[in-house]
């Protein structure tokens, strides 16, 4: 099924947990402008495509193209990026509307693991630590080395926090 750029923006905005007003504020445009994009009355300015895609957690290409990209992908060996060029992203959305975003370069994660750090120890938060306790970062690293990238983990804690781990 074909989707329009407006529908994609609306879907991705809701997925990222932003309201139209919040997205508008982040992009320094009016909420009406966002509403017009989502209803396919107008399109975002070309200068806004990059920050918009970044806020929605996708690339400009994915924003403009109709082809849906799978959330998790196995990349062939020849096309794989070096681990040194990858980012380990943790996104936490709480039911109260709190949002936490952590971006860590993969080499830092690898060193952290080698010296014995664990995510709950770093998280320093009862709920976040609890939600992340069961995640084996070593296994995630192994998956990434084998070429699996994208959304690798989604956990919902007892408190209702949704934790997602992406490697890109």
């Amino acid at each position: 099924m074909e989707t329009t750029i407006g529908k994609r923006i609306a879907l991705l905005r809701r997925k990222a947990g932003y309201t139209q007003d919040e997205l508008a504020e982040k992009l320094n445009v009016s909420p009406q402008a966002v509403s017009k994009w989502e209803n396919d009355i107008s399109c975002p300015d070309i200068m806004l495509l990059s920050p918009l895609a970044e806020l929605l957690g996708i690339t400009v290409d994915e924003l403009l193209n109709d082809r849906a990209k799978p959330e998790t992908a196995l990349v062939p060996e020849a096309e794989r990026k070096s681990l040194d060029d990858m980012l380990f992203k943790v996104i936490v959305n709480s039911p109260q509307g709190d949002k936490i975003r952590v971006n860590l370069p993969m080499p830092l994660v690898r060193i952290g693991l080698e010296i014995g750090l664990k995510i709950p120890q770093v998280a320093n938060s009862e709920h976040l630590g609890d939600a992340l306790k069961g995640i084996d970062v070593q296994q995630i690293l192994l998956m990434v080395e084998k070429g699996v990238i994208g959304k690798l983990v989604e956990v919902e804690s007892a408190a209702g926090d949704i934790v997602e781990v992406y490697v890109e």
């Binding site: 109260q96 709190d98 949002k99 975003r101 952590v102 971006n103 370069p105 080499p107 830092l108 010296i115």
Partner: peptide
Amino acid sequence: QDMLRLVKELRRIKRKYLRLELVSVEAA
């Protein structure tokens, strides 16, 4: 040695990803 390794890596990352947003926390 572990800490120095971390610092060395952080310096390298700083050069590579200038202005990388490490943490963003937004309360409701």
